[in-house]
């Protein structure tokens, strides 16, 4: 019953808050390769659509497709491509976002504990400088941050709990964003001209609760993201400056319900909303509410 209350809270909870988002399908969703228990599954095709609310009046529809190949009971590989449509006062912008290539390795279980590790890369499809009608757009309207990132993490499964620790490190900055708040006609978004982003560290705790029929699974979780430093941009005077308050902690509460339609088909619904946020969120990953639906074919 307590879990049902938690899920209900996730659905109807504090919509006015903001969080560093999981919309980029980055470290917020890297656990996918860890969480399948069926050893007979060799491949998974997943298609999903995520609806979310961002800063100011920005709304997002962000579909993605993913393919996972289980080479053995220990090693799997996932490829994912994201797309994003952002709508708000600047207009509507749609574009491909990033490609993710991630490998997962599951170690042999010991005393009901199982460790796993992941390593991956994120490649952007844009330099984060999409424009509308010649106007530069803030990062909130960009489909990608324009960085090549390394993603690395580890997970521990103990009973019904999963504990994950990960980092997302930008290693090549291709961001050529040219948005200046001064020239935009609004103060809703900070300037991000030639934006440079600092890494993130993530910690997530997940509780898995499965109905006896094993058809329906709930996974409430809490997600801590620490932005490891202040992001920077080049101001109108061609000087690189730090964005004060862009570092720090974000805490999201997330809920996921997974329903097994058949032995080879699965439907997932996830919701997320934040409870702790950074002071300034220039990266455009800010979301006040996220609702995702995904459909998976396992074979």
């Amino acid at each position: 019953m307590r879990k049902l209350v938690l899920v209900a809270f996730l659905f109807f909870g504090s919509k006015t808050l903001f969080a560093q988002g999981c919309s980029d399908a980055g470290i917020c969703s890297i656990d996918k390769g860890f969480d399948r228990e069926t050893d007979s599954v060799r491949q998974v095709i997943e298609t999903a659509v995520v609806y979310s609310l961002g800063e100011a009046d920005v709304k997002y529809v962000s579909p993605y497709v993913a393919y996972t190949k289980h080479f053995s009971s220990k090693f799997s590989f996932t490829a994912r491509v994201t797309y994003s449509t952002a709508t708000g006062s600047f207009g509507t912008r749609s574009q491909f976002g990033d490609a993710f290539l991630i490998g997962n390795y599951r170690f042999k279980p010991k005393q009901q504990k199982q460790w796993s590790a992941m390593l991956g890369f994120k490649f952007p499809f844009t330099a984060s400088n999409l424009k509308i009608n010649g106007y530069s757009l803030p990062l909130d309207y960009q489909s990608s941050l324009g960085t090549i990132d390394v993603l690395a993490g580890t997970a521990l499964k103990t009973g019904n709990f999963d504990w994950q620790l990960a980092v997302q490190i930008p290693v090549v900055n291709l961001n050529r964003n040219s948005y200046f708040s001064e020239y935009s006609g609004t103060t809703d978004f900070p300037s991000t001209n030639l934006f440079e982003r600092k890494p993130d560290a993530l910690f997530r705790a997940t509780y898995t609760w499965q109905l006896p029929s094993r058809k329906l699974t709930f996974k409430p979780n809490v997600l801590f993201i620490y932005h490891l430093g202040e992001d920077t941009y080049e101001n109108i005077f061609s000087k690189r400056v730090s964005i004060a308050g862009s570092d720090g902690l974000t805490v999201n509460i997330n809920g996921l319900a997974s329903y097994r339609l058949t032995k080879k088909q699965q439907l997932e619904v996830s919701v997320a909303t934040p409870v702790v946020v950074r002071d300034i969120r220039p990266d455009g990953l800010t979301r006040s509410f996220v609702l995702g639906v995904s459909y998976q074919i396992l074979f």
Partner: peptide, 17 residues
């Protein structure tokens, strides 16, 4: 072709100068 595909539509803040 899909990777190059993108579209946009102007809004209040981008509707002309």
């Amino acid at each position: 072709s899909f990777l190059l595909f993108g579209c946009s539509e102007e809004g209040v803040l981008t509707s002309g100068r």
